[in-house]
């Protein structure tokens, strides 16, 4: 059977960038299907995505990024896609690099492939606070999964069939990227990183404010600890 590729774009109030992101993906990955999961946007995100040629799944109201990604994975599972790629709606994840993520999954080298900003490509320079947080996460996750992971917060990922099935049944709620890796490792999935360069966001704002970043750290650390203690 031919490998069906789905691009999942979670979007919340991204009318400024969504059409450009979709157009770029269609140009670079003409064979891929695109689904935009609209998480209760109050702007014209859904219309822009729809006229751009994507399937649009709209939540009745805002549910958060975790639930939004999971809706995408549930769609991927129900439609029988064999690979799903998460791409941000803000233009940070260049469409010309999707192929790099997909290739190792296709070749069966990994169940999930994460695009890392810290493997030599691009010149991503986070703020001191953010890079400290990222360093803590990557150290911790590297220790837990006994494999070096450099960019645990990257949301630029390609998931194979078994990962799609797992994420459709279980996906963390908020700030899910780091926790998802730990969950996958616990379930025995193989994780691989490939170097990518990311662009500056083309519009919109980061969801991570200083106050939220404290919550982010605490929540993710707690979630990882609890995940390690959970039976299944």
């Amino acid at each position: 059977m031919k490998n069906k590729l789905l691009i999942i774009i979670p979007a919340f109030n991204e009318e400024a960038t969504i059409a450009g992101v979709i157009a770029s993906i269609r140009r670079h990955m003409p064979a891929a299907d695109i689904v935009v999961v609209n998480d209760g946007s109050r702007d014209r995100t859904a219309e822009r995505a729809s006229s751009g040629g994507a399937v649009v799944l709209s939540h009745l109201y805002n549910m958060g990024i975790g639930a939004t990604m999971q809706t995408g994975y549930k769609y991927a599972r129900s439609k029988g896609y064999s690979i799903a790629v998460q791409v941000d709606a803000d233009g940070q994840h260049p469409a010309d690099q999707i192929e790099r993520l997909v290739k190792p999954v296709l070749e069966g080298k990994a169940d999930i492939v994460v695009g890392s900003r810290f493997l030599g490509e691009g010149d991503y320079r986070p703020s001191i606070a953010r890079s400290a947080g990222m360093a803590i996460f990557s150290k911790l996750v590297s220790i837990i999964i006994k494999e070096k992971v450099t960019d645990t917060t990257s949301g630029f990922r390609a998931a194979g069939k078994n990962c799609i099935d797992y994420f459709a049944s279980r996906y963390p709620d908020d700030y899910p990227e780091v926790e998802a890796l730990v969950l996958l490792h616990k379930k025995g999935f193989s994780i691989m990183e490939v170097p990518v360069s990311m662009a500056e966001r083309a519009g919109g704002r980061s969801s991570i404010t200083p106050m939220r970043s404290v919550y982010y750290m605490v929540k993710v650390l707690l979630a990882i600890m609890v995940d390690l203690m959970k039976k299944n």
Binding site: V37, V55, L57, S58, H59, L60, Y61, M63, A67, Q70, T71, K74, Y75, S78, D173
Partner: peptide, 13 residues
Amino acid sequence: NKTLVQELTLLRN
């Protein structure tokens, strides 16, 4: 609630 919204979203599609 999350499961319900997700199922509803897929059903509408």
